[in-house]
Design a binder for these strands. Structure first.
Lengths: 129, 129
DNA sequence: ATAAACCCTATAGTAACTATAGGGTCAAGT
DNA sequence: ACTTGACCCTATAGTTACTATAGGGTTTAT
């Protein structure tokens, strides 16, 4: 299939597919006479792997590492585990930050009695302090 | 005070202060004979306002809007309220995404029995599906 | 007089894309 | 045969909020 079809099937934009290829996350596709990229089902699976990793917010660099690991099936999977754990730590850290942030925003929003002027606005006051 | 002192007092890097100035978030400071930026306490407060907004992950564009609103003390504060509510929505949305993400990562991590090879690794398997 | 510590502008780099310019390919219709 | 439209190509610039660098000037202390 050509890139347009791969794009529709996978849900990744054409630009993104080409970008992943340049970053070395997808193997170089065959080319047609007219230099169009031609993809197999295997290529679709590669792309879906990347997409799944991205949906977990794994960085492109880490995905590259995972792909390399995937290609060494006999090695220990402890490094894979390590990478996932780190990703989990990152997510936990972000969640904590977001919670704190949510609390302050909620509190701020509650101090705004909408029929007020900016001069007396509780939100601006708390941002100012 | 000069930019180095403002940087230490505020906790923003010198580069960031100059960046905020270029983006129009801080008023243009006085300059010394030798063209060094000179800041007053008012400037420090401006910077702290920006910093506080940033700690709530409000975008520079939205901070600019808040500053403009701040300078119209007699207007209604409903637009301020609106902006904060939108920010809260954004944060809530991100939290939901993060929770889903955390769940999948946790589940994946639990399928890895560390003494395995990559070939039999539950993590790689679930990323592949 | 000179060295260290500070400041200046302008520009490039970061992550993970998205968008654009300026072109080539291919199949269908006239 | 020719043109139209849908598709493809590469290379480059833009996005956000910074950070880092190059290549200089200023101030202060010795």
């Amino acid at each position: 299939m050509k890139i347009g079809e791969l794009s529709k099937t996978s849900g990744c934009s054409i630009q993104t597919i080409r970008y992943y290829e340049r970053q070395g996350l997808l193997s170089d596709p065959e080319r047609s006479e007219g230099n169009f990229r031609l993809y197999s089902n295997k290529a679709l699976k590669e792309l879906e792997f990347v997409k799944h990793c991205r949906s977990l917010d794994i960085s492109l660099d880490d995905i590259k590492r995972l792909i390399e690991l995937k290609n060494k099936p006999e090695e220990s999977c402890s490094s894979v585990n390590e990478l996932i754990k780190q990703q989990l730590n990152l997510v936990n850290k972000r969640m904590k930050e977001l919670k704190a942030l949510k609390n302050e925003l909620q509190h701020m929003a509650s101090t705004c009695n909408s029929d007020n002027t900016i001069e007396g606005c509780g939100i601006i006051k708390s941002l100012d302090s």
